[in-house]
Design a protein around this nucleic acid. Sequence first.
DNA 1: GGCAAGCGAGAAAGCGTTTTCTCAGTGCTG
DNA 2: CAGCACTGAGAAAACGCTTTCTCGCTTGCC
Lengths: 344, 344
Amino acid sequence: MARKSATGRIGIADVAVKAGVSHATVSRVMNGNFTVDPDIAARVRAAAVELKYQPNPVGRSLALGKTDTIGIVVPDLANPTFQAILRGLSRAAAEDGYRVLIADSFEVSSEEAILAGEARRRCDGLVLCAPRMSDAELEEIAPSLHPLVLINRTTAAAGIPSLVVDYGQGVQDLAEHLVGLGHTRLAFLAGPAGSASNGLRLEGLEAFKTRHPQVAVTMLDGGSDFDTGHGAVDSVLASGATGILAFNDLVAMGLMSGLHERGVDVPGDISVTGFDDIPFARYTTPTLTTAAVPIAELGGQAWRELRALIRKEDHDAPGSRYQPRLEIRASSGPAKAPRTAAHG
Amino acid sequence: MARKSATGRIGIADVAVKAGVSHATVSRVMNGNFTVDPDIAARVRAAAVELKYQPNPVGRSLALGKTDTIGIVVPDLANPTFQAILRGLSRAAAEDGYRVLIADSFEVSSEEAILAGEARRRCDGLVLCAPRMSDAELEEIAPSLHPLVLINRTTAAAGIPSLVVDYGQGVQDLAEHLVGLGHTRLAFLAGPAGSASNGLRLEGLEAFKTRHPQVAVTMLDGGSDFDTGHGAVDSVLASGATGILAFNDLVAMGLMSGLHERGVDVPGDISVTGFDDIPFARYTTPTLTTAAVPIAELGGQAWRELRALIRKEDHDAPGSRYQPRLEIRASSGPAKAPRTAAHG
DNA sequence: GGCAAGCGAGAAAGCGTTTTCTCAGTGCTG
DNA sequence: CAGCACTGAGAAAACGCTTTCTCGCTTGCC
């Protein structure tokens, strides 16, 4: 009786029949339109409650041209950074009644554009974290993705806010910190080649090198996870550096773990710094010196930018630049006297 | 010209006009229906490419009665366990062309039912992690959420697969491990009161206590995060226990950090165990003895169960029970001789 | 008392697809 | 050569909702 629609679910028509009115009236009541007679409205509401009617969001989306959903594309859901962005975004969006659809590209950059397009079409807007996508491709697809907010990327395409963390500044701050502790041989354990944020770090290090020509900075290949750091122990030791700038906290933790296994003391023999200040960074042994990025806040800001775009507030798509804050903990310490001196 | 629909986006109608056919034919071509003349099909495809036509998923969903999207409700997106489930689920679902909509209840259990309902209506199925929801409420709403898969909960409602980790067994294994090392005074740093998985652990401990009446097991109030563990140092020390079973790895890490600050040696003075084997557990100092839960696999299995339900394969909604695997690392060691003995 | 204004609710037209139904046209067969 | 089966494409209905349009009824004023 109640279930007459083809899908087997209660529809607006069922409520209309039960209340003895047209579906138009039911719709009006459900949407708080006050041009409905209070008696009828009450009858409709009673019928809706009795039938446990819940409007079908798909029909609603089609009629309204909006889904109350936003999408986010991340390269790796296992990465704490993206988890935190997702969390901040989800929380902020939820407060405004929006839901979040996730698309994990699993580091397959060729998938990113397709995923982004698909996600965008299902949603009212998109947050894109695509560190590996080429600038050209990004610029090409960006307009079709509008409303769009970029994380840690910028593009020449117009009207696209970018939220970028100033990794260049952060890595310089960390390097200065190490130099201030007397280190003269540094090594940078790089992130994935082609990653935008790795590029920013490299630029920062170039600036640092011109400012401190006397400091040797070795570049080591790396990645973005534990295992990268753990596997880099040999090359780190071979470099002879006493201060190691790891790509991020994960790499730093992996490295510290590896150094610990080799009996290398941190920070006695070698100082290690991370990047991001993930929650775990303050619980490692020794606690990790790092550059703190207000990452959950970044997720929240991404939502606010996106919301402005969705609401078509003229807002000039300013975007924001986040300055990392140096977080000095126990993994960095004074440089050890050079080995030769210790020898004698 | 191309953009004539009200939304400003290219629709099937635009392609139809461009190709000089009806929308029905365009739809047929786009869906690979072979009853279309190859010449016309080619013309349609050319038009679609030229206009960059992409079908509107909302219209498609309405017509097909499916969204190719599933939802997941989690109590706390900041918890590595749920992150891992989400990741496993997302990856498995993506392989079958499904997307994941997330709903974070932020530990507000009164929201869980509403969130679950909303998410469900937008999706083809739902994975529900709602450890705090009452059995009664769960049983009441479960039928309306079908297809539904439960994580770490069971319900009397029919046809609902449950994926549960055997926390009771896991905690017993850990306790046995500590007893085997000579510990006779244990303490359990409990999780959130009312949490289903905490209940399972408590049941396991009861079983353990009846089997080992000579072992003292102190119950301490707790929570599920770092700060809980860190803040529990006093009560842990006051308990006089030498073997601490933390609710999960996060709590264990917080506790170890707090003990370290107090100069208490782990495992020399006190042994600490966690639960879950989150990726960080093998990088703490000392590395953490824990019970490993194949959590990402659980996400994948959740998808397979849900898929079977969506496809209406008769599958008897078996669900699965996951046995944690004891992961002995460095945070647990032989019990110290009683303090009195050391005194003399 | 008759007419205009106003209000409230039903009818119907979308929203963008898919899919069934229908029918024109072609090519066989008898 | 006529009729029939069959193929292939357009017309139209359906999915479930919102919203405009329209119209009947009531009310108020002259």
